[in-house]
């Protein structure tokens, strides 16, 4: 249990000379211990002390995922800066629906937060309701995206802007779809006897982190694609 109290001869050379000399003497005394002492066994400290690093792993993954979007945004901005569009193309987009969609998605982040808070307070039913609301907001957002896609005057291959627009919003929509499904799964798993409980919050926390990430990306996307 005591990871630091057992002196290690290997670390001894870092200690003060006197202390290290003492240790050497001690080692010389315990001649047979040369091999063993080198191994510096130091208790069972490793069995404890590691927190749950799964969220850390997910966060690292989200950094990677964010870099994909960063690449897309960089491509879009460069296209926009240097490539004139073919005739008939322009960068203007209808703003009402996307703005409503943005608000929906931001609201869904809030409702997810409420869900997490509820389960922390042992109000499982409230948590499940908030999860449903979140999923509903997410899928409404996707419906809004569909409506927008079908009402836009350009198709995927019409011009460079159109292609980039569909690629980026489509890739984001894929993320929302995945997140919505994940929310439904944890909603199902948080039922009585399910896997998601106050004692096993990781699935919920992971989905929440992912969902906030997807919302954050949308805010960036909205600023770059629609407002700029």
């Amino acid at each position: 249990m005591t990871s630091s109290s057992v002196p290690s001869p290997i670390s001894a050379s870092a200690a003060s000379p006197a202390q290290a000399a003492d240790l050497s003497v001690a080692d010389a005394g315990a001649k047979q211990g040369a091999e063993v002492s080198h191994q510096a066994e130091a208790g069972h400290g490793e069995e404890e002390g590691h927190g749950d690093f799964r969220l850390f792993g997910l966060a690292t993954f989200l950094v990677a995922d964010g870099m994909t979007f960063a690449g897309f945004f960089a491509a879009y901005l460069t296209f926009r800066a240097v490539n004139p569009l073919a005739e008939g193309g322009n960068y203007e987009l209808e703003l009402v629906l996307p703005t409503v969609n943005t608000i929906l998605l931001l609201l869904s982040s809030l409702t997810f937060h409420r869900a997490a808070k509820a389960i922390h307070q042992d109000r499982t039913q409230a948590c499940r309701n908030w999860l449903l609301v979140t999923a509903a907001l997410g899928f409404t957002f996707l419906g809004g995206q569909m409506v927008e896609y079908f009402s836009l005057p350009f198709g995927l291959t019409d011009n460079l802007f159109a292609s980039t627009f569909y690629a980026i919003t489509g890739f984001h929509g894929l993320h929302v779809t995945l997140g919505g499904l994940m929310i439904l799964i944890i909603w199902w798993q948080s039922r009585q006897g399910g896997r998601v409980t106050k004692a096993n919050l990781f699935p919920l926390e992971a989905t929440e982190l992912y969902w906030h990430f997807v919302d954050g990306i949308w805010v960036l996307l909205y600023g770059i694609l629609y407002l700029l």
Partner: peptide, 24 residues
């Protein structure tokens, strides 16, 4: 087999005062 060793000086070759680590 047992607990993991704590190796704080992975390159402590020939350092004085060098504990008679291996070989001895």
């Amino acid at each position: 087999k047992g607990p993991a060793p704590l190796v704080t000086h992975p390159y402590g070759y020939g350092e004085a005062p060098q504990p008679q680590a291996v070989g001895a």
